[in-house]
């Protein structure tokens, strides 16, 4: 692709909605001149600072680690800061941007994440360690770390959550983000309450509500797999007492070196 291609002017179509003044959401077009490497977030910044200061969205780090800028771009959820604009304007030189679906809109791309954070709290995201705290670190093998499949990399951006059709129909569903966090804690050998956690996720609005639609995997900007985490929780939930006993056994050796 030549540089000439990149520097053309394109249309950024944004869903605008300020409940204080608008009766309902409406689309508004802005013209932006692209530069090489420009991302959707860069385009929004250009519009907000030079054309229309009322265009409102959340953002911070610009490189996909803070999770602020998840929004709906050309029909899918992703991070605005990691989406090159050149890929999104193939059709009609236009990219369409809106807020994450299924959540109440506060203003433009800013959504109300109250239910998202409530579900995160419901699964008790903090570790519940044993009472017997050693002087040095607990011993955890690299294999046990790998078994978490990078679940600790989740930035809580909400792209998965608001791509989930189940969430669209049932706001009480725990959601892929909370279940991924529960998975992280259930599988951690340092956690003393796997049975209690599995109990929490087995409730009516827990793992049973996942219909393996897989939108979460497509949406996740970190390449994580909440569906597989949920499957694992489902299987473990069926044998939660045994799993807890195995955990107690493991924790007897939590302060001993991992045998080679």
């Amino acid at each position: 692709m030549s540089n000439n291609d990149i520097q053309r002017t394109v249309t950024v179509r944004i869903q605008r909605f300020n409940p204080d003044v608008d009766k309902k959401p409406h689309m508004q077009d802005y013209q932006v001149k692209m530069w090489p490497g420009m991302t959707i977030l860069d385009a929004l910044h250009e519009i907000k600072t030079h054309q229309d200061g009322s265009v409102t969205y959340r953002r911070s780090c610009r490189h996909g680690i803070c999770g602020s800028c998840a929004m709906h771009i050309n029909g899918r959820n992703t991070l605005a800061c990691k989406t090159p604009i050149i890929n999104e304007v193939q059709k009609n030189d236009t990219v369409t941007i809106g807020p994450l679906p299924y959540l109440p809109v506060i203003k433009d791309m800013v959504v109300d994440r109250t239910s998202f954070w409530e579900q995160y709290l419901r699964v008790k995201p903090w570790l519940l360690p044993p009472d017997d705290i050693p002087e040095k670190e607990f011993r955890m093998s690299q294999e046990e770390v790998d078994a978490l499949h990078d679940a600790e990399a989740c930035i809580m951006c909400g792209a998965c959550y608001s791509s989930c059709a189940v969430i669209g129909l049932n706001k009480k569903y725990l959601g892929p983000h909370a279940l991924l966090k529960a998975f992280l804690r259930v599988l951690d050998p340092r956690d003393t309450a796997p049975a209690e956690r599995l109990e929490i996720v087995s409730q009516a609005d827990g793992v049973a509500r996942c219909h393996t639609i897989f939108n979460c995997i497509d949406a996740c900007p970190k390449g994580l797999n909440p569906t597989q985490a949920i499957e694992t929780l489902r299987k473990l939930a069926q044998k939660r007492q045994q799993y807890e006993e195995a955990r107690r056994e493991r924790q007897k050796h939590l302060n001993e070196p991992i045998p080679s």
Binding site: E137, V145, L184, I258
Partner: peptide
């Protein structure tokens, strides 16, 4: 680590 931070580990399980 005691609070649940996931660290990369050595072969014998230390940070």
């Amino acid at each position: 680590e005691h609070m649940g931070c996931v660290f990369s580990r050595t072969k014998d399980g230390r940070i």
